[in-house]
Computed example of a mutant assay.
Amino acid sequence: MGPKEAEAELQAQADIWKYMLSYVDSMAVKCAVELRIADTINMHGCPITLSQIVADIPDALSPNVSYLKRIMRLLVRRKIFTEHHPLEGGDTKYGITHLSRWLLQDSQMSLAPMLLMETHPRLMTPWHIISHCIKDGGICFEKINGRAIWDFASENPEFNKLFNDAMACTARIVMNTILSEYKHGFDSVGSLVDVGGGIGSGLAEIVKSYPHIKGINFDLPHVAATAPIYDGITHVGGDMFHSIPNADAIFMKWILHDWSDENCVRILKNCRKAIPKETGKVIIVGVVLQPDGDGLFDDTGFVFDLLMLAHTSGGRERTELEWKKVLKEAGFPHYNLIKIPALPSIIEAYPK
């Protein structure tokens, strides 16, 4: 074995170790979020010591500072926190970074609720049986939890809140980008249905920016029942597989990736019935996979595809050609793909 081959072999071993244990990163970040470490440091307005962090941990009966130090050591290495060593001795202080700002639970622009949902035991256990589902068939989440994720949420209020909070936080982040990048996309829309709009936070941002729009937030009854009141928005409970309220346009953010191609066609056909044939449009916000892409979010798109495999009943992320096929089968022969600086893209679909 030559020097280059030996180096490649060693690198391969190091990579396998990294992939094998990458869950440790997720669990360490989850620990930091549950202890509100980023919020505590941010509240102080400057780097603080471990003892200061521990003092602000709620309900800490007998805190183990040595454990926390080891967690922080890894998170500093991952650039989630900074480490400051005083020149004249004293305790090490920890500060926040651009990464940890996305973990602030007191911030409107936070991924903390999404992280807490994705690392919840109910969503982690399906990953352990993917190989069994490949061999024997079946839906991962349903095999572990006994029912589809939507039914499980409807029967478990605590999980339902966790799920809704996660969807709301991603809605705020994505909507912030859409409203700044999707120029004039809502100008001619008088009424807009947000299909699968959760508790309505995403639609609320649209109506706030376009107050002429009559907003209809449409989701399953148990979701719509928990939605807060927003100006200009009506909450409607129902089933998108049966019918969708009529409007000038329909908005769907991260909905179709939850479903198989066959179910997507069913949903889109109902969308087609709900909008004017001549002027209506469906605005889809979803991942468009780039098989050879090296963009900022391209790799995450493929990770999301496996999230759909683990957590949904046939859901998947799609390439542009796969999107085109689904849209055409549903009666949308024309579409416009708009890339934005975010994980998903925007697809405008037209029935004519």
Rank of each mutant, 00 (worst) to 15 (best):
W102G: 14
M167L: 12
A148P: 14
K328A: 11
L162W: 03
D15P: 03
K273F: 10
M252H: 06
F141C: 01
V189T: 10
F163E: 13
L104M: 09
M1E: 06
V76P: 01
R266L: 15
I16A: 14
V76T: 12
L203A: 01
T300H: 14
K328G: 03
I199G: 02
I130H: 09
V285W: 01
C271S: 06
D219K: 07
P276K: 01
K324A: 14
P3F: 13
D91F: 12
D294R: 14
I206Y: 00
Q108N: 14
T279I: 06
G295N: 05
C169W: 06
E5N: 11
W127R: 15
L75P: 11
K325W: 09
P126A: 05
L192H: 01
E5T: 15
I275G: 06
K135P: 08
M72T: 04
S22E: 13
I178A: 03
H212F: 00
W102C: 14
L309G: 01
A227P: 01
G315H: 02
R318T: 04
Y94M: 05
P121Q: 02
A247S: 09
S201T: 12
W254F: 15
A249T: 11
C31F: 15
G295K: 06
S154V: 00
D136P: 03
T300N: 09
N42A: 13
H222V: 10
A249H: 01
V33W: 05
R172T: 06
H235F: 00
H98V: 15
A8P: 05
G314R: 07
K18N: 12
A60L: 06
V265R: 01
L103H: 09
G197A: 01
D292R: 07
D231S: 00
D248H: 02
A38Q: 07
D39N: 06
S313C: 12
A227E: 02
P344M: 04
I284Y: 03
S180F: 08
E118F: 15
Q105I: 10
I53V: 11
M72F: 15
A55R: 06
K143Y: 07
H84A: 09
F332G: 02
L103Y: 08
I178H: 03
G200I: 00
R78C: 10
A32P: 07
C264G: 00
S345I: 04
I233M: 00
V288G: 05
K79P: 11
G2T: 02
